[in-house]
Amino acid sequence: MQRRSILKGGAALGFATMMGGKLAFAQGLEKVKAGFVYVGPIGDGGWTFQHDQGRLAMMEALGDKVETVFQENVPEGADAERVLTQMALSGCNIIFTTSFGYMDATNAVAAKFPDIKFEHATGYKRDTPNVSTYNARFYEGRAVMGTIAGLMTKSNKIGYIGSFPIPEVIQGINSSYIHAKKVNPDVTISVVWAYTWFDPAKEADAAKALIEQDVDVILQHTDSTAPLAEAAKTPGVIGFGQASDMAEYKPSPRVSAIIDNWAPYYTERVQALLDGTYAQKDTWAGIGGGEVKIGDITDAVPADVKAKAEAVRDSIASGAYHPFTGPLNKQDGSAWLKEGEVADDGTLAGMMFYVEGVTGDIPS
Rank of each mutant, 00 (worst) to 15 (best):
H51N: 11
A207S: 15
W284C: 02
A11S: 11
A303V: 15
H51F: 08
Y321G: 04
L348I: 13
T298C: 14
S90Q: 14
A317P: 08
I362R: 10
R3S: 03
W197I: 09
T17G: 09
S163P: 06
A307E: 12
G45F: 03
G54W: 01
A57N: 10
M19C: 08
V131D: 01
A206K: 00
S318C: 10
V292D: 03
F49T: 00
A317Q: 08
G21W: 05
G241Y: 04
P302C: 13
W284M: 05
A16D: 00
I211S: 02
V39C: 08
D282V: 10
H221M: 12
T97A: 10
R55T: 00
A335N: 12
E168P: 01
K233C: 11
F113L: 04
T128D: 00
G357M: 12
M152E: 00
G101S: 09
I6E: 08
S252L: 15
W193I: 06
T267Q: 14
P251V: 13
D216A: 05
F118V: 02
D332H: 14
D205H: 08
H179K: 13
G357F: 07
A229R: 07
L13A: 10
V187K: 03
T298H: 06
A207W: 04
K33C: 00
V37K: 00
H322L: 11
K154H: 15
F353T: 14
G146C: 03
Q220W: 07
A243V: 14
G141Y: 01
G159D: 05
L273I: 11
I238C: 00
S256K: 01
T188E: 15
T325C: 09
G295R: 03
P200I: 15
I178T: 03
Y139D: 01
A309P: 04
H322M: 14
S364Y: 14
W336I: 04
A317K: 08
A349N: 08
E230I: 08
A180Q: 00
D245V: 09
C92Y: 02
Y38T: 03
K293G: 09
I297G: 00
G91P: 06
E341G: 07
G141M: 05
T98H: 08
V183C: 06
D345W: 14
R269E: 14
I94Q: 04
E339Y: 06
A136W: 03
S224G: 14
I116F: 02
K281C: 10
A232M: 10
E203D: 10
T17N: 01
A136Y: 06
F324E: 05
A229K: 14
I6Y: 13
H51P: 00
P363A: 11
W284A: 05
S176N: 08
R142F: 10
T98R: 01
Y278E: 00
V69L: 12
Y249N: 09
K308T: 03
E212L: 14
V69Y: 09
V217D: 00
M351S: 03
A231Y: 02
V292Y: 03
N130D: 07
A285V: 12
D361E: 15
P41F: 11
A26E: 04
